[in-house]
Design a protein around this nucleic acid. Structure first.
Length: 885
RNA sequence: GGGCGGGUAGCUCAGCUGGAAGAGCGCCACGCUUACACCGUGGAUGUCACAGGUUCGAGCCCUGUCCCGCCUACCA
């Protein structure tokens, strides 16, 4: 029952480990499948199984944990669903690299053995990030942890594939796709990153077949000319109108190709004629389809020229480029070369230049899915926060193109399609067939490809809850309440979850999406390994503790803004942890002999009422801010309350009562308030700083109460709103500050106790100051305080003004009068500026006629205050001049 | 080319529906007052990018300009 004694400082490393274990053991993170309590659920953006915790993860998961802890404390049946993603390309790369060290390739092992090897790798090294999330304090329901390659999730993937296929939403075909010659797979449009490249624009002459001159085309990829099957011009181009339909001879290849007309061509660019290579360019491919052109691929999956490239066969595409250019020049076809900057697509995984290539792939018809996803957001079934992202979402969804979902990898969900070697039929099935359902033949061959990893992550919000089974968890928690993720995967993931959720579940996957910004370094640059400016979150945790680190992330997460991270900022919040720790030490010491049931009683003192009113405001502020995902505002509210209200004022002003210098009943009342306020304060802070608050909560409550994380989050209490007490206390604080100001400005050392006189102005104020006498004497460090309704200003004093009150501090023998004169003049200058501004405003007839009455009243009050202050200060200055002579 | 965000104290940023310019860090001065020097008390600092406009009143709303980021796009 009685509070524990605390050590000199909080020891994060030891406490974090111990407390996290305690939470796990007590199953506090565990969500109930069914419950009386309202549900609240978040699915984690599944990190890659190969992933290591970086700043982006740290931010993302800290924010999720803040909300989850907050909602859990508010009494919701809270689920934070954790798990990982199998990351097809990345994981396969890692294991292939491992094999390479042994001198092997995946083909040496064969598909089955390779996959077994990947699983082995996963068991041994995968999922390091899960433990790193635990160090962050994440309160995920680990009992439910899922992996996209799990049995259940894999089955779900098949179900969805088959459903889409049967409803004609999936098709297979030869189309041009983004091919990575290093990963040897197709990737989706989204997985291509464009980088600016300083290259050349080569102008090449294609002679007419009939010998009547030539036509010049410009290209950034001369090597692809080997696969040209046409030259295109704009149908309205007067220069070429009569050339349409004629043939030109393709240089080096010596083959006739036609001149066609298509309004895709920009007349203003180059010569207005463009070479068409349907096998190596998506636009040319589209044109080939419009015009029924022949499609020739001259580059293979390795990025090498193939047999259609004639003598260049076997050369790398860039080597071939040099050779083609050289040959064109030699044979007189090269008209010119000009430097040219253009964008080149690269594989987002390995940064190899993408090769647009025609191949047989699987696609999802996306338009019908996108239409529903668009509607859901415009009807606010799902809310995107901050709302500015909605425009981006709509823009992308409206221009979306079919999604290439097949990947030429081994690690992933293999496409559930089989081909019968006997009757040639295609079988699409959720279960592996052992014979052909059409001809009973047994020579079945499964499609070699696997699905895009994002296909399975798109299903994450319901597959993790057990779908296709209609589980209780699914019923309780779908649609999930909130998704928190970085804006950078709005398209990759959020949009696809929207489409799949609506398609499969007929309901949105989440009600709110909060998109946070990127974490950058202190100079605002994106963190990256190659730049060497990345900060390791685990290092920060080791150095400053998880609490300080998390608080820093929250405090800097303003909506729509990047988070600039630096160790110094984290250190600043480590100081905050220390401050809390020390405040707790004092608080607990004061509560050592507190007996809740003691018969002693006294009403709340003025500071008690004041701190409760302030706490009330803070509670309201924190709840409102968190409800709106304004993390920085919530963090600032708690910070300000703890440091500047509880520590700076409440503890200081209550010391005499707490030390028992006033009386036992007063001591008891102060203890009662302190215990209550301190507890609530820890609760408000807990979502941000889970560890230190738990440690202190248990020290405060002893064994009679459980973990803070399952305690009830504070709510605003009407009986704590004491406006009068708040005002009176603030007036006393102003008096104290005024005296301290004189002390500071006059450079009077604290060792010298001052005398102060207060001329209160009226009886009410006099009484209030009299009531606050003890606080003032203490905190302003006075030796005596005289208070009256009206005191005439003594000679040789420094003067302060608070509302209608004048405060005099005799300076005799302390400082020279000149110092006070300067101080007064400064004050007068300041107040006369305010005075002038205010009176000008009130003199304005339009202002009086048009402004709201309460605004006018407020302005009048201000004016009165300024006038009083001005008069008082002027008087003081005059007096000072009188004695100065 | 299209779209979005930003330009507020030396630095990093708050500032919700327009009614006295804020915080943290840094800086200056004074202090080891029995929770805390990872601290306390006090102080200084702003043509709120620029130019117009709306309004009694603009950091906030409108128009234009200039910078800086990011996203997106098939001009070879």
């Amino acid at each position: 029952m009685s509070p524990k004694e605390l050590g000199k400082a909080f020891e994060p490393a030891e406490a974090e480990k111990r407390l996290y274990h305690y939470w796990l053991e007590n199953k506090f993170f565990h969500a109930q499948d069914t419950s009386e309590a309202p549900p609240f659920s978040i699915v984690i953006p599944p990190p890659n199984v190969t992933g290591m915790l970086h700043m982006g993860h740290a931010l993302n998961n800290t924010l999720q944990d803040i909300i989850i802890r907050f909602k859990r404390m508010q009494g919701y049946n809270t689920l934070w669903m954790p798990g990982m993603d199998h990351a097809g390309i990345a994981t396969q790369n890692v294991v292939e690299q491992q094999l390479r060290k042994e001198g092997l390739s995946r083909h040496d092992l064969g598909r089955e053995k390779f996959i077994a090897r990947v699983w082995e790798w996963k068991e041994q090294y995968g999922g390091v990030i899960i433990n790193q999330l635990k160090r962050l304090g994440c309160s995920c329901d680990w009992d439910r942890e899922r992996f996209t390659m799990d049995e259940g999730l894999s089955q779900a993937v098949r179900e969805v594939f088959v459903r889409l296929y049967n409803e004609d939403m999936i098709y297979q075909g030869d189309y041009i796709v983004n091919w990575c010659p290093r990963c040897h797979t197709a990737i989706s449009d989204l997985e291509v990153e464009f980088k600016q490249d300083q290259s050349n624009l080569w102008n090449i002459r294609y002679p007419f077949a009939d010998g009547a001159g030539d036509i010049v085309v410009a290209t950034t990829r001369p090597e692809t000319m080997l696969g040209d099957t046409a030259v295109a011009v704009h149908p309205d181009d007067p220069r070429y109108k009569d050339k349409i339909g004629k043939m030109v001879i393709l240089p080096l290849v010596n083959k006739p190709i036609p001149i066609i007309a298509d309004d895709y061509v920009t007349m203003e660019f180059g010569s207005g004629a463009v070479k068409i290579t349907p096998g190596s360019d998506p636009n040319d491919f589209a044109m080939a389809q419009r015009h029924n052109l022949e499609i020739i691929s001259v580059i293979d999956g390795q990025g090498l020229i193939n047999e259609y490239g004639g003598k260049y066969k076997g050369q790398d595409r860039y080597e071939a480029r040099d050779n083609v250019v050289a040959d064109l020049e030699k044979e007189g076809y090269l008209v010119g070369t000009e430097p040219y900057a253009h964008n080149v697509g690269q594989c987002y995984r390995c940064k190899t230049d993408i090769e647009p290539m025609v191949s047989k792939q699987w696609f999802v018809k996306i338009k019908p899915l996108a239409a529903k996803a668009i509607a859901a957001v415009s009807k606010k079934k799902t809310r995107i926060v901050p709302a500015t992202w909605e425009a981006t979402y709509f823009e992308w969804m409206n221009n979306i193109r079919d999604w290439c979902i097949s990947r030429q990898l081994w690690w992933g969900h293999r496409i559930p399609v089989w081909y019968c070697g006997d009757c040639g039929k295609v079988i699409v099935s959720t279960v592996d067939p052992d014979k052909c359902p059409i001809c009973d033949g047994s020579s079945l061959r499964q499609d070699e490809d696997v699905l895009d990893t994002w296909f399975s992550s798109a299903l994450w919000p319901f597959t993790t809850l057990g779908w296709p089974k209609r589980t209780e968890a699914l019923k309780t928690f779908y649609p999930t309440s909130l998704l928190i993720t970085g804006f950078d995967i709005l398209f990759f993931w959020v949009a696809r979850m929207m489409m799949m959720g609506l398609y499969v579940m007929k309901d949105v996957p989440f009600k709110d999406v909060y998109l946070h910004a990127l974490v950058r370094d202190e100079k605002g640059e994106k963190m990256s390994k190659s730049k060497g400016n990345s900060i390791d979150p685990l290092l920060m945790i080791d150095q400053y503790g998880t609490d300080a680190f998390r608080f820093t992330l929250a405090a800097y997460t303003a909506q729509g803004r990047d988070v600039r991270m630096s160790p110094e900022r984290i250190e600043g919040y480590k100081f905050f942890v220390n401050k809390i720790w020390n405040a707790a030490k004092l608080t607990l010491a004061c509560l050592a002999d507190y007996d809740e049931n003691a018969p002693l009683d006294a009403p709340d003192s003025l500071p008690d009422k004041w701190i409760k009113a302030k706490l009330n405001e803070t509670i309201a502020d924190v709840i409102r801010s968190l409800d709106e995902y304004r993390f920085n505002d919530a963090a600032a509210a708690v910070y300000n309350f703890i440091w500047h209200e509880y520590c700076d004022w409440y503890l200081e002003v209550s010391k005499p009562a707490l030390y028992g210098r006033i009386g036992p009943a007063e001591k008891h009342a102060a203890q009662r308030t302190q215990r209550e306020v301190f507890g609530a304060m820890l609760q408000l802070l807990h979502p941000f700083m889970p560890f230190v608050t738990e440690e202190l909560w248990q020290a405060l409550k002893g064994s009679d109460e459980h973990s803070i994380m399952v305690s009830r989050f504070p709510a605003v209490r009407e009986d704590w709103n004491e406006k009068d007490a708040e005002k009176e206390m603030e007036m006393i604080m102003d008096v104290i500050t005024a005296i301290r100001n004189i002390r500071g400005e006059m450079r009077i050392p604290p060792s010298h106790k001052l005398t102060a006189l207060v001329s209160a102005g009226d009886e009410t104020s006099r009484e209030a100051v009299e009531r606050g006498r003890g606080f003032i004497v203490n905190l302003a460090n006075l030796e005596s305080l005289a208070v009256d309704v009206s005191l005439s200003e003594p000679k040789g004093v420094a003067t302060g003004v608070v509302g209608g009150m004048r405060i005099f501090v005799p300076l005799a023998g302390l400082v020279d009068i000149a110092g006070e004169k300067t101080r007064l003049e400064k004050e007068i200058a300041k107040v006369s500026k305010d005075l002038e501004q205010s009176s000008r405003k009130l003199a304005n007839r339009d202002f009086r006629a048009k402004a709201a009455p309460e605004v006018i009243a407020k302005e009048e009050a201000k004016l009165k205050e300024f006038q009083e202050k001005f008069t008082a200060l002027e008087g003081a200055l005059k007096k000072l001049k009188d004695i100065a002579g």
